[in-house]
């Protein structure tokens, strides 16, 4: 356990600079975006109301009140999130391959640590999870800051003060990354991140197949991933094929929970086997 925590700490440390840069980009982009969006809105308001003589009521009716939603649909908001997600997805590969790359192959050291090798796998996965959750937490904080910014910049009669969850709930689907990364219900949150983390485990297992059997391993890895997804999504596939619902939503949820455990558990089990018996430096 102790070694596991040291490994997690080590893995976080290796990426912390890039991670802080990601966080910095997100913060800067969203805060600048909020300021510019509020500013544009106020400029428009000045133009319409003071230059063109439109009434405030008409302006609000026509352009709507400004709220967090204006920011959440903008690229100032979505680009850095997309970027961070992309970087973390790429790093999920690189977190393994970097140990094999170059002359100073660190994988020698990792595999020779006097600790169960599965700890390396779990530590790398945990590092990814922590970094993902860290960015989510940062986003929640940022939304609060942005909400305060809005209150400070725009008079009350021109803005709609939405709570954070309210603002997310108000998003129409597909319009913003936010609906994906911070779902409004706890169950939904569990589903999003449960599936996400399971995918990371499957990906890691596929990578270990490749690292164990090299060229042939790519096929094994892809094969493993396909099987894992088919098993996990089997209930949905069955319902789509036969065109009817066999299970109540709660039953489906419980069944999916069990399948999640099966798929995640087997990924860890297979990885443990590969790390101990098959992996090669």
């Amino acid at each position: 356990m102790n070694n596991f925590l040291k490994l997690v700490n080590f893995e976080l440390g290796r990426f912390i600079k890039v991670y802080f840069i990601l966080a910095g980009i997100t913060v800067a982009s969203q805060l600048i975006g909020m300021a510019l969006i509020a500013n544009d809105y106020l400029e428009m308001f000045n133009e319409e109301v003071y230059t063109n003589g439109t009434s405030i009521e008409l302006f609000v009716e026509y352009y709507g009140e400004i709220s967090l939603l204006n920011l959440q649909y903008s690229q100032w908001f979505n680009l850095p999130i997309t970027f961070a997600v992309a970087v973390l997805i790429i790093y999920s590969f690189f977190i393994w391959y970097r140990d094999w790359l170059g002359k100073n192959t660190f994988i020698y050291r990792l595999l020779m640590l006097p600790t169960a090798r599965i700890n390396i796998y779990l530590a790398k996965a945990s590092a990814i999870f922590l970094m993902v959750l860290g960015l989510v937490a940062l986003q929640v904080v940022l939304l609060n800051v942005e909400s305060s910014m809005l209150k400070w910049m725009v008079p009350a009669n021109l803005r709609a003060d939405l709570g954070i969850m309210e603002s997310i709930g108000g998003l129409h689907s597909g319009g913003s990354m936010l609906a994906v990364i911070i779902p409004t219900s706890f169950i939904q949150f569990l589903i999003h991140y449960g599936v996400g983390f399971m995918v990371v485990f499957i990906l890691f297992t596929a990578i270990l197949f490749e690292r164990s059997y090299r060229f042939k391993g790519i096929a094994y890895g892809v094969g493993y991933a396909i099987v894992a997804f088919v098993v996990f999504f089997a209930p949905f596939v069955v319902e789509i094929i036969f065109g009817r619902n066999y299970l109540f939503p709660t039953e489906l949820f419980i069944l999916e929970g069990i399948l999640w455990i099966v798929v995640t558990g087997s990924s860890i089990w297979v990885s443990n086997y590969l790390l101990n018996k098959k992996v090669t430096v």
Partner: peptide, 19 residues
């Protein structure tokens, strides 16, 4: 076993630490 790494050390031809 994993405990064996406390009594056998391998020094490869390149250093196994991050540069």
């Amino acid at each position: 076993t994993k405990e064996t790494y406390e009594k056998i050390a391998f020094i490869p031809d390149a250093i196994t630490m991050l540069p």
